[in-house]
Design a protein around this nucleic acid. Structure first.
Length: 897
RNA sequence: GCCCCAGUGGCGGAAUCGGUAGACGCAGCAGACUCAAAAUCUGCCGUUCGCAAGGACGUGUCCGUUCGAGUCGGACCUGGGGCACCA
């Protein structure tokens, strides 16, 4: 009598046994002598509340790798922690009066329990939270060390300022140019900010990307573009009738004879200076300032400028004067904030010249173009070519002309060759409470003074208030008042806290020695475990988090915290996984008469039902709001979707990333109760390649559920112990032999697939194996051996994916110990090898038949067999065989005609 | 606007080195079991012509390279992602 697989009993049972046996703990380097190490890490979560099945994919992928490595004999480190500082905790404090500390730790407790439900092989003894003073005190110590090393400095930087709330806004708190809470238009203010000198490593951060061969090309390219190294020249234009000069940066000094104007950024000092007396220029600055800073905004914006009334001398021809404009497309933050425009060779310059009727001429002749007739009117030519119309540069190809032009600028003492970086230093100051305090003290006499190491950690005060906007640290009555460590006089603490990207820039190193009180981590332990062998996370962190972490490991190395990571690269192999997406559901809006609407507090609701309502454009003045609904609030009645309780019709919206705001989430607890963790784990890895998004569907869940049941039914029906690995078979023939071959080939394939992150293909191979096991009906000893062996192999192959089910099967097959710690199966080469192959025969590239041949059969033999094939012969009738191509074990192609 | 990636049955996808296109799953169809349903099992399942054997067509479009192209090259179309107009 077969019973259904009961995940509700089985899953907790095995989790308890694993925990009791402590199999998920990483071994110390001494205890792991002779083993290789594998550090597997998923990007740690922000404790935002509850997790849904969408989050589970990331952790499941890491877990598959971790379990696979452990089965292959590695000493595995697979830890978990919490990126626990951040804005949402502070928002919750403002909105609901809960202290960020309490809110954060409650969320951590809830999410830890949820993650444990997934059966992840995580070493929970190493758990850390970045908001724990035991963590951030080391961060403060490293901050001081970086400071001593010259990697920290202070600089004025622009921030978004809310003039009503008197507070600095994060970009995400600026909605349509207004403060999210006050609704007041955002102002730009300059504040003294703490900076990390990332640019000190610009060259290395760029060059080392080449060595990161196990990172996705896409991420390497994005980092490379972000760092943005460009070679060019810096030189000065002399202003006519003045001793002042305008310095510009260019990558194309070869086009200097095509110059038609010089343009300055709206906030270039000279532009500002002229604006003081010239209302047209002041007007231009105001207009340019209204444009957004995002590229989308600027895309829509037309290029415009204003003539500053100045003229400059061309560096190569004193008699040639160029007008000076201010233009909205010139960036003050890049290069010198000034350019020369060479319209024929740059689309922006061309658009600008055309708009203001500035004269220009082409100076780069494209290959094959005729110098006498070539013109540029609407489209600039930005590629390489041969220089003409350019005095001493005439006839030189682009590259040589760039060199020659720079030589000339140097000779004239006007400029030099330079390297320009797009990368800027990292501003780490945040005017917020819930972050790591910056260990600095401001003294009127001594200036900015570091907090002495012995006084660390600088703790956050528990009794901050969140009832008013602004920085709770700055307005705390006592916290900031201290004595100066240098002179002993009255002084004030720094009230800025660190950007949370700092917290996540070294947590992977802390995991190697998470309870160290005297140092961030022990150098030997870090040297043993680092770099992280496999890092798994979302592509949204492709630039900032990964770049900052790469900076941080270099800085930690150079400040003596970290040994054994000579190249400074923290993550050897990176995988960026796709998201889980799901349909969205919205209540279909229903029109309402004005007298059916009432006001409750500051919200409109429908009278009687209390459904939220809003103003509408149609015939009726109001409607019920089309709010988002959870999947479990939906009911399907004969193909039409309704909201379960209200019986509103439901519209199916776009398929989007699972998110709280769209409510298209499937709660993890509920799902695990209904279907089990294994079903969730199996589902998120089936069907879609890991780097692509996977859509969560009921039918996909059903497929995974059926598979779990099928594996268990087959295992239970076998009803006897499976042969131990390497046991001799009692003979092997026919279908039983075929099953053994398939099982051993499955080992090879699944092993390869996991190594290469092809989880969906590994899943397909497991389905094949199960189908083959089910198909073998014979009951004799030979078949029983083959079936038992195949079931044992199956249990092992699925164990990284569905660890609970695999343990239950392993036990039912009479195997000893945990499948989780059993050695990974090895394929018997004799069984896995193919002895005969099916070769397709093509005639002139079209398939006309196939033959069976021994694997590796000699070419002559295969050729003879192919030519003798009846159908093939038919197609060859009346034609001469010109050539026979035999690709061993793949294909035969006969060329005839 | 610039840069990058991807387009394969009704759907998700497989084809790892240029060598049988469509593995595996989902959906669907037919049948078995059942009083019935669920579950399970068996078979079919790219389009098209054909009674059949078999043929023709088929991996976004067009062109090319090759004995042979989903895979390589060129041009284009569509969708997705990144971006700080980077001079």
């Amino acid at each position: 009598m077969s019973s259904r697989y009961n995940h509700r009993e089985t899953e907790p049972k095995w989790r308890a046994r694993w925990a009791e046996a402590g199999i998920d703990r990483a071994l110390t380097p001494e205890a792991a002598k002779g083993k290789k190490k594998a550090y597997v890490l998923e990007m740690f979560p922000y404790p935002s509340g509850r997790i849904h099945v969408g989050h589970s994919r990331n952790y499941t992928m890491g877990d598959v790798i971790a379990r696979f490595r452990r089965s292959n004999g590695y000493n595995v480190l697979h830890p978990m922690g919490w990126d626990a500082f951040g804005l949402p905790a502070e928002n919750a404090a403002i909105e609901r009066g809960i202290h960020p500390n309490g809110w954060t730790y409650e969320n951590i407790a809830a999410m830890r329990e949820q993650l444990k439900l997934l059966g992840l092989a995580i070493d929970w003894s190493r758990e850390l939270a970045t908001c724990d003073p035991a963590y951030y005190k080391h961060q403060q110590a490293m901050f001081l060390a970086f400071w001593r090393k010259g990697l920290v400095y202070r600089k004025k930087q622009k921030v978004n300022w809310d003039p009503v709330d008197n507070t600095v806004l994060a970009n995400e708190q600026v909605v349509d140019g207004r403060g999210w809470r006050s609704g007041a238009p955002v102002e730009t203010r300059e504040l003294e900010q703490w900076m990390f000198k990332v640019t000190a490593y610009a060259e290395d951060l760029l060059n080392a990307l080449e060595q990161l061969t196990k990172w996705p090309d896409k991420v390497r390219l994005m980092q490379s573009n972000w760092i943005g190294k460009s070679q060019g020249a810096r030189f000065k234009f002399d202003i006519v009738g003045s001793a002042e000069k305008i310095e510009v940066f260019t990558t194309r000094p070869d086009t200097l004879f095509g110059a038609s104007f010089v343009a300055l950024a709206p906030d270039h000092p000279l532009t500002k200076q002229i604006a003081a007396t010239n209302p047209a220029v002041a007007d231009f600055i105001a207009k340019a300032g209204q444009l957004g800073t995002s590229e989308a905004d600027i895309e829509k914006a037309e290029k415009f400028g204003v003539d500053l009334g100045l003229r400059v001398k061309h560096p190569f021809d004193e008699t040639w004067e160029l007008p000076v404009w201010a233009a909205n497309f010139v960036l003050s933050t890049y290069g010198t904030g000034a350019i020369f425009g060479s319209p024929a060779g740059d689309q922006r310059d061309l658009d600008f010249a055309n708009k203001y009727a500035l004269p220009f001429k082409p100076v780069v002749l494209p290959p094959g173009a005729d110098a006498a007739t070539y013109t540029v009117t609407k489209e600039a030519y930005t590629e390489d070519g041969v220089i003409y119309n350019s005095s001493f540069l005439d006839g030189l190809p682009t590259r040589d002309a760039i060199k020659r032009a720079i030589e000339e600028l140097v000779k004239l003492g006007k400029g030099e060759a330079t390297t320009q970086w797009r990368l800027r230093d990292w501003g780490v100051s945040r005017q917020r409470y819930w972050g790591c305090p910056i260990p600095a003290i401001h003294c009127a006499k001594c200036g900015v003074v570091p907090v002495p190491e012995k006084d660390l950690p600088v703790l956050l005060p528990d009794d901050a208030t969140f009832d008013k906007p602004g920085n709770p640290l700055a307005r705390h009555p006592t916290w900031k008042h201290v004595t100066c460590p240098a002179c002993g006089g009255a002084a004030e603490r720094e009230t800025d806290t660190l950007d949370t990207f700092v917290d996540s820039s070294w947590y992977f190193a802390r995991f190697t020695d998470p309870n160290n009180d005297s140092a961030p981590f022990d150098k030997d332990l870090a040297a043993y475990w680092l770099p992280v062998d496999q890092y798994v996370g979302g592509v949204e962190h492709a630039v900032l988090h990964l770049l900052y972490a790469r900076f941080f490991t270099r800085a930690m190395r150079d400040c003596g915290f970290l040994d054994g990571l000579a190249d400074g690269e923290p993550f050897k192999s990176l995988f960026t996984q796709g998201m889980v997406v799901h349909e969205t559901y919205r209540r279909t809006p229903r029109p309402l008469q004005a007298d059916h609407v009432e006001r409750k507090g500051d919200r409109l609701v429908e009278k009687g039902t209390g459904f939220p309502a809003e103003k509408a454009d149609g015939a009726q003045p109001y409607r019920v709001s089309p709010i988002w609904l959870l999947p479990e609030e939906i009911e399907n009645r004969e193909g039409t979707l309704y909201e379960r309780d209200s019986l509103f019709r439901v519209e199916v919206g776009a398929i989007e990333k699972m998110s709280k705001s769209k409510k298209n989430v499937v709660d993890l607890d509920t799902f695990v109760t209904d279907f089990g963790a294994d079903v969730a784990r199996w589902f998120v890895l089936s069907d879609s390649p890991p780097e692509r998004d996977v859509e969560w569907t009921a039918s996909g869940v059903k497929g995974a559920w059926n598979f779990v049941q099928r594996v268990w039914t087959l295992t239970e029906a076998h009803g006897r112990p499976a042969p131990k690995p390497g046991a001799a078979a009692p003979g092997s023939a026919g279908d039983a032999h075929a099953l053994r071959q398939l099982a051993h080939r499955a080992i090879q394939s699944v092993t390869e697939d996991i190594e290469h992150f092809r989880f969906n293909v590994a899943v397909a191979r497991c389905y094949e194996l199960v189908n083959a096991i089910a198909k073998l009906k014979a009951a004799d000893e030979t078949a029983a051996f083959a079936r038992g062996e195949a079931l044992r192999i199956l249990a092992q192959l699925i164990s990284p994916f569905m660890p609970h089910l695999a343990e239950e099967c392993w036990e039912a097959l009479g195997m000893e110990g945990f499948v989780a710690t059993a050695p990974w199966p090895e394929a018997d080469p004799a069984l896995a090898a193919r002895t005969t192959v099916t070769l397709p025969i093509q005639v002139n590239g079209k398939r006309r038949g196939e033959i069976e041949a021994a694997a590796g059969a000699p070419e002559d033999e295969v050729r003879a067999l192919a030519l003798a094939h009846p159908t093939v012969a038919q197609f060859l009738a009346g034609q001469a065989v010109r050539k026979v191509i035999v690709v061993t074990d793949r294909i035969v192609n006969i060329v005839a005609g």
